[in-house]
């Protein structure tokens, strides 16, 4: 092959000749590379007996608070680990570490989502944390963003989308992909319902309109209202 122009002729020829255009059929997803790593992650989770849950929401919807309360409730019964995704800082990881479970912080340095390769790396980092090599349940707290994380499979078993009461009930209608691709929709901060116009039934109906298979629950991690349904769900997916 010619090193200069890449054609099949021997090296010693002039490069004025035309290289004929060729149409190459590909039919491969742009996410193929991500999805291949996601499949490896899933196989790894299953070999280790881990159930992995990918949590997707806007910034400030209460993902970390829900995790803190979940760890407090289940610690000692279920071995929990957490991979935190944020653009900058390890503040969320510090909050989780304070609860005494293995956690790693993946900072994306500007990227708006976690991808499967970051979870692969995060999983190996987690295994070096005390207790991180023997887990029952892995929470992946995605970068706060209701749009981009929905496109990237991480190899998780369950995808949870969260919307807090102050954000308003129109999020399912406005950000459909996150709701179509999730199994559970959690409405958080319901202790604030008296102060905001958030018709829970309307938000549920909008979400079910997009994805009739979606399981919907409403809770407050601070007051504890509705929290048992979340714990029941976690115990059910671990069976």
């Amino acid at each position: 092959m010619c090193d200069s122009c890449g054609c099949d002729l021997p090296t010693d020829h002039d490069h004025n000749h035309e290289h004929a255009p060729e149409i190459i059929k590909v039919h491969q997803s742009l996410l193929a590379a991500n999805d291949a790593i996601a499949a490896e992650n899933k196989a790894h989770f299953e070999a280790m007996g881990i159930v992995a849950i990918n949590m997707i929401s806007s910034p400030g919807s209460g993902k970390t608070t829900l995790l803190e309360k979940t760890i407090e409730r289940l610690k000692g019964k279920i071995r929990i680990g957490v991979i935190e995704g944020d653009i900058e800082t390890d503040r969320d990881a510090q909050r989780i570490r304070a609860k005494g479970v293995p956690v790693v912080q993946m900072t994306t340095g500007g990227a708006c989502h976690l991808d499967a390769a970051q979870i692969h790396k995060g999983l190996h980092l987690l295994e070096k944390e005390p207790g991180g090599d023997k887990l029952d349940l892995l929470f992946i707290e995605n970068v706060g963003n209701l749009v981009c994380p929905a496109t990237f499979d991480l190899g998780e078993h369950q995808r949870v989308v969260l919307v807090s009461v102050p954000e308003g009930p129109d999020k399912p209608a406005k950000y459909p992909k996150a709701f179509i691709s999730s199994q559970i929709f959690v409405i958080t901060k319901i202790d604030l319902l008296p102060y905001f116009d958030f018709p829970v039934a309307e938000a549920k109906a909008d979400a079910l309109h997009l994805n009739p298979r979606l399981q919907v629950m409403a809770l407050s991690a601070t007051s504890g209202e509705g929290f048992e349904a979340w714990i029941d769900y976690l115990e059910a997916v671990m069976r």
Partner: peptide, 19 residues
């Protein structure tokens, strides 16, 4: 009103013309 979407979520490189 409850309709389940099928497909439509692909991001597929279909073909490339190269020379």
């Amino acid at each position: 009103t409850l309709l389940i979407p099928e497909g439509g979520d692909g991001i597929i490189l279909n073909q490339v013309e190269m020379e």
